[in-house]
Design a protein around this nucleic acid. Sequence first.
DNA 1: ACCTCTAATGTTATACTATTACATATGTAA
DNA 2: TTACATATGTAATAGTATAACATTAGAGGT
Lengths: 137, 137
Amino acid sequence: MSSTHTHSKKNQSLTKNQRIVLDLLQNSGEPLKAYFILDSLKKEGLNSPLQVYRALDKLVELGKIHKIESINSFIICNNSNCASNTAFTICERCGKVKEIKNKYLKDSVSDLVKDNQLEITRYNLEFYVLCKSCKIN
Amino acid sequence: MSSTHTHSKKNQSLTKNQRIVLDLLQNSGEPLKAYFILDSLKKEGLNSPLQVYRALDKLVELGKIHKIESINSFIICNNSNCASNTAFTICERCGKVKEIKNKYLKDSVSDLVKDNQLEITRYNLEFYVLCKSCKIN
DNA sequence: ACCTCTAATGTTATACTATTACATATGTAA
DNA sequence: TTACATATGTAATAGTATAACATTAGAGGT
């Protein structure tokens, strides 16, 4: 899964810390934990948890990454325009995480809660699955 | 919201720690954090975080309570037979949490991911909303 | 260029959340 | 009763996240 140089270089206007954190997540493609990010970027000049968390917070806010709550991890966004909404599958056996594409969800989600008179501002959906390769073995 | 004595008394076969933790969550009806539970039950004999976490783990496993991942909190189950699946609305303004009834979800959820060839073993859905009373003010 | 304001940084300390490890006790079934 | 799994009690520690405060960097307006 090395997609190191395949992403658009639209990471301008980010600060140095935000950029190196985003680059790491982009190059990794899998969910990373804050303290792992810290360790990985010590050589780039990151010294404290707060530097990592501040960068992560901003990137989440910009919709460039997502937090997966149930595993306290952060992953690069594979969609666009999902600053507020996130949906993932997480393999129960191998832990592999995939983001579910927006377009599969929009309509279903509104059906999902139409019986409540609630207006949804955002959502975080975590589906635990057995992924294809784990299902085989 | 005092539904203190309206729940069925099927809490037999639970151990003492499991029972007092469950009772607290039942009487509270809102999400509680582990260390809050610990403080609340010091007088009942709970002394260490681990005692709380072990009771919580067991109760989650039994489907009697749920963990709401994004707020590190636990709440009494308002459904039945949802040991594995959870779905909540969380008010963005006041933090109020409500469990979404199973029956509204079963079909929608299977639609939701029918395009993927994944078999879902369980899910955790967190919908952030503006609740009715917050919408008014 | 200068002022101003906002956002980001750097650093230390601390708070909050959760688990490891180990010794002991309890309940259930053969 | 023995054996086994499960729960308990306790202390220590690991993992996750934020508060507080001083400083610096950027973007806009004049």
